[in-house]
Design a protein around this nucleic acid. Structure first.
Lengths: 147, 147
DNA sequence: TGACAAATGCAAATAAGTTGCATTAAGATG
DNA sequence: CATCTTAATGCAACTTATTTGCATTTGTCA
């Protein structure tokens, strides 16, 4: 699998106060991006660590948390959370989609949805004076294995 | 404010293995339901405790967690979680609605949405062989105060 | 009123995520 | 290639959210 854009340079426009900063293509960053890119589902830090433990080198959990924070700041990764304990992370460039969550085995998969939720966002902005920037939609139920 | 159905008897159909069980109208349950019924937004355990501390008697946090678990099992309360740390709880009988979450001050409010998400659920069931039972939709953005 | 089980409180245990600090190692430079 | 600078890492300790065990209290119902 090809991983692009591991090295990240410069600073994004919204980091106004930050000093210019050079990001490095480290082992940890590379492997975390690899794991997130492989699956078609968002992973928890625990799951990321489990996968990496089976490979050559596994970073410390602190490193994983910090890398994810950096990748989120750089808009390369998105954070999602369902009604389980842990947060989940997925690559940001996988296109807009939503999730189905199995309430039994906790497995998560991506889905795309037809409805025009962008229109809803505009309506909310009007009626609630709430400036909706993004949305998240999850379907909970039973996956084929647990049904 | 009137609180109905504080005493809960019998067992719901899906509690197959459980022995019949009588629920009691205790101070803790009464006050937790009162707090959840008052607002139009889901509350975290911390927020529930904060409100109750200002009143006559405040239950222990363990009790709050346990009462919420019981109320959820009885389908009287729903649990939701956004990308903050703590889970939030709201009365189940407030009609189907969704949430707007302020990414700045973390405030949460209810909204109702037009789109036909039930239709989406059926489609998912077909294409993903995933039996979607319920869904949750959140809009993230800035509330009037933070915008 | 008295018995019995539901409900509670407290303290200790988990689990998820964070922070401080000393150390390591990308990557730029000579 | 050796060296320097600082981003990135690892470790241990910490915070916050939630759970569990156990002894005690308290609704309910006979």
């Amino acid at each position: 699998m090809q991983i692009s854009c591991i090295k990240m340079e410069g600073m994004s426009s919204d980091q106004s106060k930050e000093v210019a900063h050079t990001y490095r293509a480290t082992q940890a960053r590379t492997s975390i991006i690899a794991v997130l890119t492989e699956g078609n589902a968002p992973l928890s830090v625990g799951e990321i660590l489990d996968v990496l433990k089976k490979r050559k080198s596994c970073p410390n959990k602190t490193t994983v948390y910090r890398q994810l924070a950096t990748l989120i700041r750089r808009d390369m990764v998105k954070e999602v959370q369902f009604t389980e304990g842990a947060k989940r992370y997925e690559m940001a460039d996988t296109g807009h989609h939503h999730h189905v969550v199995c309430t039994q085995c906790k497995r998560v998969e991506d889905v795309t949805v037809e409805g025009d939720l962008a229109a809803e966002e505009k309506m909310i902005a009007k009626t609630k004076k709430f400036k909706a920037l993004r949305h998240s939609l999850e379907f909970y139920g039973l996956c084929p294995k647990c049904a």
